[in-house]
Each structure stands twice: as structure tokens, then as C-alpha cells.
Design a protein around this nucleic acid. Sequence first.
DNA 1: TAATAGGCTGCAATCGTTTGCATAGAATAC
DNA 2: GTATTCTATGCAAACGATTGCAGCCTATTA
Lengths: 367, 367
Amino acid sequence: MQPGRRHSPAESVALFGYSLTPMILRMLKTRANIKDVASRAGVHPSTVSRVLNPATRSMVSESLAREIVRIADELGYRRNALASGLRTRRTFTVGVIIPDLTNPVFPPIVRGVEHTLDGEGYIAILADSGSKRRSEKALIENMTARQVDGLILAAANRKDPLVDQVIEQGIPLVLVNRTVDKHNVTAVINDDELGIDLAVGHLVGLGHRQIAYIGGPQRTSTGYARYRAFLKTAKKAGIKLDRDLIINAREFTETAGQAAFHELIKTGKHFTAVLSANDLLALGCYDALEELGLRCPEDISVTGFNDMPYVDRFAPPLTTLHIPHDELGVQAATLLLERIENPDTPTKQLRLEPRLIVRGSTAVPSA
Amino acid sequence: MQPGRRHSPAESVALFGYSLTPMILRMLKTRANIKDVASRAGVHPSTVSRVLNPATRSMVSESLAREIVRIADELGYRRNALASGLRTRRTFTVGVIIPDLTNPVFPPIVRGVEHTLDGEGYIAILADSGSKRRSEKALIENMTARQVDGLILAAANRKDPLVDQVIEQGIPLVLVNRTVDKHNVTAVINDDELGIDLAVGHLVGLGHRQIAYIGGPQRTSTGYARYRAFLKTAKKAGIKLDRDLIINAREFTETAGQAAFHELIKTGKHFTAVLSANDLLALGCYDALEELGLRCPEDISVTGFNDMPYVDRFAPPLTTLHIPHDELGVQAATLLLERIENPDTPTKQLRLEPRLIVRGSTAVPSA
DNA sequence: TAATAGGCTGCAATCGTTTGCATAGAATAC
DNA sequence: GTATTCTATGCAAACGATTGCAGCCTATTA
């Protein structure tokens, strides 16, 4: 570089005469690449590369490095992540698959994941699989084709060939929210047994003895674990279990909850409370109660699980189990980054503790 | 290919003798690439490439093409999107930036975007900017470094240097939810004037004459447009405007709404309804009302804007303006794809119509 | 029968970075 | 003053796909 020359665009035109054409071409074509920076600095591209990479920057003399950096931002150089990733086999990208983004449980998890990743220079490819298995498979293939460094799945089933496939391919994987039966995956989930325990304890403490249970799909770890926990805990609490008052819904949705509640009523059996395996199911109970002209909590107490945003504003505010949504995401991302750094890290099942939040949907049973 | 040979793994070991080593190396190393497929098929990589690309597949003879496809999935070949994108300058990736994913307005929009993109083979890189400008800038740079084909921004300000930058760089861009003052961008937004008109009409129809307004930040197009619309519409409806009863909050948040409502009360002026520029602000009003021991709608009617999921379950269910969340996303994605295909498409501002949903938070004013 | 056209496939350059290896010069040791 | 180590940089080969061009072969035409 000739120190006397400053580069206003106009000067460039005047000063660099015949070198103008390639410059203009470059500007029209696309943004500067590493070769442009190198030739402007009169060095080899590899030197520029080393300067721009923190790990190798010290290999280059300080003064030259500074000059290169100056030129790089003068030209507005930005590393092309495709080329870089192709060469290094690291994309600093992770894929995140969510079954339904409009289920309010997931956005905070996603946010936790993203913020954690962002801190380490990673970015998330997010996809909403819409609960369809086929699209989920396609999404995973799409993501692996993009050479993601790892995957976070929030929609695993207890037996999940997709999960097996991912593991087999050696792609770092972390499950969140749900896990599989085999313990060969790292997962961040809730302590479902503790949660159900707390809910049952609360209802029993209020004096409920006939407690109905609306569970979720048994193919999911949450649906299964909560169901088992209910059986176990209820027995421990000494309340009599009536199989007719235990229904496992097909989906964790409001309509499924509503239908399940109607089924409970149809049995003709008496119950004073219904413990549901998730907030949406509880909402379905609200719907059914209203249709039946029953009041909550005066006639029937209802509890949920998850403490979705805004359930505290519902009529009545829902008694439920709070799970640390953000933390779930943060931990999942942290563990994934660990696995990416070191793929041989032993798998680990992290179980976060839920907290009972008592609100207006539970009360002492009416005489 | 020698037709007599079938390839069970064990046979391969026996039959291919010395060719075993490279095969094993390949299997250990990573998944098959185009060269592997080519050499197994005894053709040049370019032929494989042509077969696997629908647009060029017809250049290759049908029988050879079929054989290559067979071998490709036998080897589990998947195109490396980095290499492909590097060469073609198309990544089939679009960046989506959302200010706050936990605001329930956004998930449906994101879902609409994703499903539309997915249909065309695109995938979304999603980022939650957390409303911080700096991180937003960094995110955009990160995404452009990854060579996204386009960008969808849901958090633009009326004057937005970031938006200008993106346009200047020639990256296809679509704004959603909010837009900028200049009409040099394609945007999908709501018809705010119509919405406010409907809300005012509803309140006036109920008999309200003293209507307070809690608006949003004036730096956003929604905040500004709704404010202007309120001024205009209220005048048209013949109700007297009291400047003290018009407050524009700094943020579209619950706490900002709460604070604004307290300010309204502090003026000592009489009003029977408050029209808020968004549901979260309305929720803040609920909070303030409760703190003040006032009832909604008996003492004060409240309206919102957006019809966020679940506001129908609040106590009281919120009267608000429904916007077609999914459609917002679908349109944004569609327009973006259009711009990606043809960057010279003239910019367009698409304005979707909101619909008034009357629920329990509005009533005839008390005498 | 020779010339021409058209259909298939191969060749090699390219996209933008990274990195092991080589080398020139400077600095140190003896 | 020479031998030896460093230091700083350049060289060139990857990474995995795509694509304009060239060339071969077969089929068609005059």
C-alpha cells in the first residue's frame, strides 16, 4: 500500500486508471471476496484468511494484520459462510424442529435455544413440522443436506426411528421437552413424576378423593411418564383409582381435552377434580365444562401442566405446573454445543423441576 | 455396471477385494458424495449432477439416469447444499427476523412463512432479535454471510437504516407486520385505518362518547398509523377529542399499557372506554383496572388489536380486531419468492383487512 | 457414401475459503 | 562467521457441486 493515497470513490476513479474495470465489475457483481481484499493489500488470500480468523491471526505480523483488517472493512468484506463451511465442515448452524410453533410452550424454548446459540456464533434453522412425521423426516434430510452441526428435536416419540437415524448418522443431537425410551440420547426434559406428584398432592390436600385424569398420547414420553406417575402417585396418596376416570387423549390439544372430558361425564361416575397432563387439555376441559353448564372450580377443579404463557389470565386462572421454558431451551442448546465440540460426550438426561402454581381453577370440593 | 452383481454389504467385501479400502474410508469419513456415485456408476460426476437435477435430467439417457438414481439412493447420497449453493449462488434459504417470538402474534406468521417456503424447497433461518437493534444488525449480517436468498423482517421501524442497507445490497426483502415510511419496499401489513375505524364505530355504537386511546411507539408504522387513524376516525364519528386522553406508549407491551392506563386515570378526566393499539396494551389495561378496583366492561370498556391467540379466554374475553396471522406470513413468503425469482418486480404494499371481533370487554357505558 | 445434425457424455474451470507444506529471510546460538 | 532455529508469508490442493464447451457416436439427409 502506498501510504499517501486515500480512497474516496472519486479519487479511485482518477488514480487507479485501468484497474477501474475489474473494480467496477466486482462492485456490480457482488460483494468483495477474500481475493479482492488480498489483491488490494498486495498479499496472498491465505494471509487474509489467517488474519480474519481469530485462531490464526497471531501467525501474521501485527502491522500487516491491522492493514488487512482496515482494507477488509473498507471493502465491506464478509466471509462467505458457504465456502467456509464447505472447506471446514463446520457451518455453525443447528437445526431446530418443533411440532407446533403456535403451541405457546415452544416459543420460549426456541428463544432460549437461539439466544444461547447466538452467543457462540451459531444460528438456528427453525422448522415447524406441523406434527406430521413425513414432513419431519423431510425436514431432517433438508437440514442434514445443509450440513447442520447439530439438531434439536422437540417432537420425539418414545420409539423414534427418526431419532435412531440421526444418531446413526453421527449428527450431534439433543432432544428437548420429550425424549425416547432408550437412553442413548441427550435430552432435556421435565421431571414429570415430580410434577404429577405435586398436582395430586395439591388436590388431595384440598380434600379431593375422586380425581379423574386426562392424559396425553402414550407414544410420547411426556404422555407416558405422566400417566405412570399419576397411577403411582395416586396410589401412594391413598386415593382409589377408577380406571374409567383415566383417559389418555390421542393428542395434546384443546379439542382432545374437550372430548375426553365429555367421555368422563358419560361414565356417570362421580369426580370432583380432573388432573390433565397439559394445559391445552385443561383448556379443553374448560370448554366442556361450559358446554355442560358446570363451573370451575365450584363444581370441578382442573389442573394443567406446562404453565403456558397467559394461562394466568384465563377464566378461571389455571392451576398448573410451571416448567422453566427458557431454561429448557438454554440447557438443550448448551448440551448440544458440548456435543458438537466433543461428540463423544456421554449422553445425559437432564430433568428440570416443575413448580406448582396454584391459581383459581382448583378449590375445595363442593359437598 | 455389471448386471450380474448384486450388492449386499458382505458380497461387496468379497467381490470388490482391493476396492474395499477406499469404500470403507468413505463410509467412515462421511456420507457419499457425487464422486462416489459417479465412480460406482462408472460415469463422470457431471452426469450424476445432471441426473439429480430435474432441470437437466432430460439431457441424460433414460436408462442411465435410472441406474444412477438407483445407485444414488443405494449409497444414501444427499446433495451437499453448501457446495451446491456456493456454485449456483442460490441457497434456497431465507432469513426471518422477529422482534419477540413469545409475542403470540408472531408464531402464526412464522408458521405461515415456513409452510409456504417449505412448499418451494426453501427453508427458514429464524432469529429472534429481542427487539435490540444491535443484535438485529448482527443477525442480518450473519444471514447475508450465509448467502440467504432473501429476508423477511417483522420488526422494521418507520425510518430504518437497516432496511435501507438491505435494499442497497440488493437482497430481496419483504417486510411483514410493520413497514417503513418510504414505499420502496414490499410489505404485507394490516389495514390499520380500517381496523381503528371498526373499533371506534363499535364503541360509538354502544354509546361511548369519551374514548381514551392508548397507542404504540410512533417509530413503528403500526403505532403511527393507528394513532393517525384514531384522530381521523374519532373526528369523523363526531366525538370530541381530548388530547389528555390520548397516550402513545413507548412499547407494545403489557407493562407499558398498564402504565399508560394509570396516566389516563391521573388526568382526572372522565372516560368510559379505552381503545388500545394492540392486545398487549389492552392486557395492561386489565392489570391497571384490577389494581384500581375497576371492572371491565362495567366501568370501562377496553378494545385491543391483533386478536392474539387465547385472548378469547381472558377475563373478560377481549374485544379486538382479528388479523389474518397465517395469511400475513403466507403472503410475505409468497411475495418474497416472487422477488427472488424476479428481483425487478415492482415493490408492493399488501394491506390485509382486519375484522372486528366483539367479545366481553366492551359494553354499553354505565350511566 | 459423404456430409450434417443431434443426442449423450466427458472435461475442466469455477464458486470462496482454508490449511499443510515449503521457503525466504531474520534472529539466535555457538 | 556459520549453522540453526524461528517467523512470516506464499503456494496449491482441497471441500462438493455445477455448467459451458468440446467431442464422440449414431441417425438422418442429399
